[in-house]
């Protein structure tokens, strides 16, 4: 198959990773051979492969969602295609991409690789870090996106940063078009749409950090 990354983008990534990657990053990919159930698995696998080729610090582990049930369960992978990242110590960064990270979301994937290489050290305000200490039980943030939505990466990255910062938070990107049933269940019709703890809370829009955290914390406080 022809390369998905242009030569220019490939060079850009080689350069960027050369400068930015501190430690090793392991990307776990879960796919399915059943094409009718996972239209974008093949394409996702290929873009990850090309990504891995831009730096020797990045490795990809491909897994089959149907054949490796136990592993999928261990990582709480619920659907495919799924991507998650482990740092050099094998620590799960608690971020998930469900659906292909294409369009603007490709940038989110790159930012996550860089953060993972720094063991999940992310830039957040002092205020946020303090507030996150109130999150004492598991909290799931699902960010529904479309690849053509320019506001969406901001929300995805915010959810992913919170997940890297707080060991109780899982942050997911969900490509809404690829999971129509789930999108329908949560009435997604305008993105980014953020679902907190399977529907305990929700909001729409790429809010700035403080407001985003406020929304998340309000669910924690209610519980």
């Amino acid at each position: 198959m022809a390369a998905l990354l242009s030569e220019e983008d490939r060079k850009y990534l080689v350069d960027l990773f050369e400068k930015e990657l501190k430690g090793e990053v392991k990307i776990l990919f879960f796919g399915s051979k059943k094409k009718e159930e996972c239209e974008y698995c093949e394409l996702t696998e290929q873009i990850l492969q090309e990504l891995a080729e831009t730096s020797n610090k990045i490795t990809i582990e491909n897994h089959d969602f149907d054949d490796e049930e136990a592993l999928a369960k261990q990582y709480n992978v619920e659907m495919v295609p799924a991507i998650l990242m482990l740092d050099a110590n094998g620590k799960d960064m608690r971020i998930r991409f469900y659906g292909i990270p294409s369009g603007y979301e490709f940038s989110s994937l790159i930012e996550d690789v860089i953060a993972t290489s720094k063991n999940g050290a992310v830039e957040l305000s002092k205020d946020t870090i303090e507030k996150l200490q109130d999150v004492k039980s598991p909290l799931k943030l699902q960010v529904f996106v479309t690849p053509t939505c320019p506001y969406c990466p901001k929300a995805v990255l915010m959810a992913h940063k919170l997940a890297m910062q707080s060991s109780n938070i899982v942050g997911e990107m969900i490509e809404a078009n690829e999971f129509p049933d789930l999108s329908m269940q949560y009435n997604v019709s305008s993105v980014p749409h953020i679902i907190i703890n399977d529907g305990e809370g929700e909001f729409v829009g790429a809010l700035p950090e403080e407001a985003f955290v406020e929304q998340v914390i309000s669910v924690v406080k209610e519980a």
Partner: peptide
């Protein structure tokens, strides 16, 4: 209805319709 059918961005949300 902001997240239930009202949109200001067709390229972002068009595919839901």
């Amino acid at each position: 209805f902001l997240n239930r059918g009202v949109s200001y961005c067709a390229v972002c949300d068009g595919s839901f319709f």
